[in-house]
């Protein structure tokens, strides 16, 4: 230690910065790579309209993955988000049923419901001491059943103008996507520089230690699942604005899909490492991949396969170090 000269310390700092941002680096290089490929293979791909399109289409996935990221950061996972989205899509469309009179209370109620269901997940993790995988899986099944009790097929509709939530623009940019970016940036700042944000990392790194040294572990876990539930509700409202009506399986694919951007963006499933910005770029990557494959006329079936390959590729690039003895 004593002979450590300054240059080597700087190098260590650099290496650490690279290591702690490995996810971001990997996902950004993949994004750039894919943009280059796209630009080469298709003229239409390069248009501003298309890029804005990719940006817009990432919104749903990005929103639900924001909540998922926090759950994963604590070493947990939220497999209830898909069913929760389905439920809230159906309830929103069904309750509004084309009438805008009670729009504000309904939306507020839906957001509260999402957070409350997430909170219940958190309570299960903390007080029943069951693995989050199991708690949220069980909750997902219950919610899917409840959704099907409420509606076996398409249900309800949204009032006129509601679709502005999904299709509104900010100048040339899709408003929902821009708001999503702002939400990510705000979350990233809070994760980095609020006490509670640091506790989320600490709990994910070693939950037991966090408890022993007096950090509010319980509150952290309850919060991240409530946060995830809340953002599942936000996603649902965005989606129902897009679709115009409810459908009892509308959110089903989001459960596993929401995990892809998280892990591609460098957040470790073991908790304590990663961050939300990687997730955002991960969502763009998924959206871009689908867009690019569309241009290449690849069938949706093969697109699926590529998504799997991207996960393998990205995750293999930042392999976790094997637990060593020395």
């Amino acid at each position: 230690m004593t002979d450590m000269a300054l240059p080597s310390r700087d190098r260590a700092r650099l290496r650490r910065m690279a290591a702690s941002n490995a996810g971001l680096l990997v996902v950004l290089s993949l994004l750039v790579l894919m943009l280059l490929i796209g630009a080469v293979v298709s003229d239409r791909f390069r248009t501003f309209g298309n890029v804005a399109n990719v940006f817009e289409q990432s919104t749903g996935l990005a929103l639900v993955s924001l909540g998922q990221t926090l759950a994963v950061l604590t070493g947990g996972i939220d497999l209830a988000v898909g069913s929760l989205i389905s439920l809230i899509i159906c309830l929103t469309a069904g309750l509004l049923d084309g009438d805008g009179t009670y729009m504000i209370p309904v939306l507020a109620g839906m957001l509260a419901l999402g957070a409350a269901i997430g909170l219940v997940n958190g309570l299960g993790v903390v007080y029943l001491r069951i693995h989050p995988l199991i708690v949220t899986l069980g909750m997902g099944a219950v919610l899917q059943g409840v959704t099907l009790l409420y509606a076996l097929g398409p249900v309800g509709s949204v009032p006129d103008g509601f679709d502005a939530l999904a299709y509104g623009t900010f100048g040339p940019l899709p408003a929902a996507a821009v708001v999503t970016v702002l939400l990510y940036v705000a979350t990233a700042l809070l994760l980095r520089s609020s006490r509670f944000g640091r506790y989320i990392y600490a709990v994910g790194d070693d939950g037991n230690a966090a408890k022993l040294i007096g950090l509010p572990r319980t509150q952290v876990i309850l919060f991240v699942y409530a946060f995830s539930g809340f953002f599942a509700a936000v996603t649902a409202i965005y989606l129902v604005a897009r679709f115009g009506s409810g459908q009892p399986y509308a959110g089903a694919n989001y459960t596993l899909a929401s995990i892809t951007p998280v892990v591609v963006g460098g957040t470790m499933l073991s908790g304590g490492r990663g961050g939300v910005m990687g997730t955002l770029f991960g969502a763009y990557l998924v959206s871009l991949l689908n867009n690019l494959l569309n241009f290449l006329d690849v069938s949706t079936y093969v697109q699926l396969m590529f998504q799997g390959l991207i996960i393998i590729l990205a995750v293999s690039l930042y392999v976790e170090k094997r637990k060593s003895i020395a």
């Binding site: 996972i77 596993l256 995990i259 892990v263 470790m268 499933l269 073991s270 069938s299 949706t300 079936y301 093969v302 697109q303 699926l304 396969m305 590529f306 998504q307 799997g308 390959l309 996960i311 393998i312 995750v315 293999s316 392999v319 976790e320 170090k321 094997r322």
Partner: peptide, 23 residues
């Protein structure tokens, strides 16, 4: 050999197989 978390590794092969099957 690649130290991928089991959840992810098998999720990825699941998706890949699904794609192969559909194609």
């Amino acid at each position: 050999k690649r130290q991928v978390s089991p959840f992810l590794a098998t999720l990825a092969t699941m998706i890949v197989l699904q794609g192969v099957r559909f194609a």
